[in-house]
């Protein structure tokens, strides 16, 4: 009983997060400008990170935590570099 509740609610949450990722990908493709695409990328990696956390609960394994941390770090560095690039057209000032 209690496993069923957890199972279905995790499934619902994962579907919602998946839809959210699709929405960000749509914005990334449509744009219209570079800053919109980078904003969408920023949202995309956060949602992917949250999806990994729910996967971790589902499989009862803490390996996904390390992956989530890694996505968080790389996503931050990546989007900051892109935002910097937009400002001046150069990554390193």
């Amino acid at each position: 009983m209690s496993v069923d509740i957890l199972h279905w609610s995790l499934l619902i949450a994962q579907i919602m997060l998946g839809l959210g990722m699709l929405a960000t990908v749509y914005r990334m493709i449509v744009g219209p400008r570079a800053q919109d695409r980078i904003l969408a990328l920023d949202a995309l990696y956060v949602v992917a990170l949250l999806l990994l956390i729910t996967l971790g609960i589902r499989t009862n394994s803490q390996v996904y935590f390390e992956l989530a941390m890694l996505i968080g770090l790389l996503g931050f560095v990546g989007t900051v570099a892109l935002a910097k690039f937009l400002m001046r057209g150069e990554v390193i000032e």
Partner: peptide
């Protein structure tokens, strides 16, 4: 409790992503 937290969290995140569109 855990189910409610996960679903509500996912709903708020989804609202944000739809907002982006």
């Amino acid at each position: 409790l855990i189910s409610a937290l996960v679903v509500l969290g996912a709903l708020i995140t989804l609202a944000g992503c739809f907002g982006l569109v």
